[in-house]
Simulated assay, not measured.
Amino acid sequence: MGKKTCMSNPLASKTRIFIVVITFLIVCSSLMRWYVFDIPWQSNLFLAMISGTVMVISWVFFSKMHRYFDSFFPYEKGIIMRMIPQVLITFFFVLAVSHAVISRVMELFPFKSLIAQQYTDLARIAGYFAQFLVVVLINVLHLSDYLFHKWRENATRAIHLEKEKAQVQFDNLKNQLNPHFLFNSLTSLDSLIQENPDLARQFLQQLSKVFRYVLQHKDKGLVPLYTELDFIKNYVFLLQTRFDTFLTIDFQLSEESLEKKITPVTLQILIENALKHNVVSAAHPLLIRIFSDGRYLKVENNIQPKKQVETSNGQGLQNLKNLYKFLTDLPFETIVHNEKFVAYVPLIG
């Protein structure tokens, strides 16, 4: 089926980053207390809980501060100018919370000697430096997460814009059958009115069915292959009225492939492309074969190029390729093989 692009929840992503960072820091600090100070595991566990509490409080503060900064000074206005006050404010908040929590713990629990043992002047300086590094790390991780989501949003938006552009180009193609086709059809109809009124009436009915199909399906992205075939047989009737036996269109499709889907007027564009570039005459009859292999619908015609081709910007096939790129992982391809032009149309569904 068509490709889908989904965005993960940014809040869940930030939460995962926070949990990983906090868990890593708590484990490292616990191992250091155990290895350096030989603290009993019960006390070490309690101190780890205190560290975790400080970090959670700091994270909540940082999240609120980040949303506040986003409202008046987003990263787009200057990453450095945003990061400096953000890091400093977070760092001083962490220091204040740590001091308040440690003071309260020393009052309520007999950890004074233990804390005094850990918090020498060197350890205190090292602790401040470690806290500052943690604050910088969290801010950098937050910035990285923010930039990653912005990049993915922009990439998704670019994909949608490309798809919309391809759809608009193809819609323009669907909304106007080749003026040459209409002109030639009306010319044929004019000659039939006097020569064969019954055939002229049938020709007009088929012509109305062709344009009705385009009008009814111009806003649809996909149609079943059997629906497209009903339309194309009316279109082929008009062509064979004009070219007689010089044009042969052979259908060899499996029942399974008829349930698959393609974009509307795909076959009409491919048949028209074959007529536009190749001679159709008694000396050079044109054979167009339409068959399927389960994954692809193949439209094949023998190559007998015209000396002068009708004016064309060459965008018909390219628009089809661009559109199918967004509908399926299978590529829309055209090749020349054994003096035959073959278009591979992905069958969807």
Rank of each mutant, 00 (worst) to 15 (best):
T263H: 08
V140Q: 05
Q205M: 13
H142A: 05
H160N: 15
E255S: 10
E195H: 05
N175G: 11
L247A: 10
Q169M: 06
P179T: 03
N154C: 04
N139P: 04
S185P: 02
Q205H: 14
H142F: 12
E256C: 08
D219S: 14
Y235Q: 02
E195Y: 03
E228A: 04
K150Y: 04
R242Q: 11
Q216I: 13
K163Y: 14
S257T: 07
N139L: 03
L143C: 13
D190E: 14
L141V: 03
E255H: 10
I232D: 00
K233A: 04
F170T: 01
Y213Q: 08
F148P: 00
Q202M: 12
V214R: 02
K260N: 13
H142W: 09
N178S: 08
A200E: 03
N139M: 09
L141C: 11
L225Y: 03
D198F: 09
E153C: 13
E228V: 02
D219H: 14
S185V: 00
R152Q: 13
L147S: 07
E164A: 12
L173I: 05
V140F: 05
L173C: 07
I269E: 03
L270A: 06
L239G: 02
V140G: 08
K218S: 10
L204F: 04
N178L: 00
F251T: 01
H149Q: 07
Q240T: 11
W151S: 13
N234Y: 04
R201G: 06
L247G: 06
S254K: 02
W151I: 10
D171Y: 11
S257V: 07
A166M: 01
I269N: 02
D244R: 12
W151R: 10
F181E: 01
V223M: 05
Q176G: 09
F243E: 08
T241C: 07
L199W: 02
D171F: 07
Q216K: 12
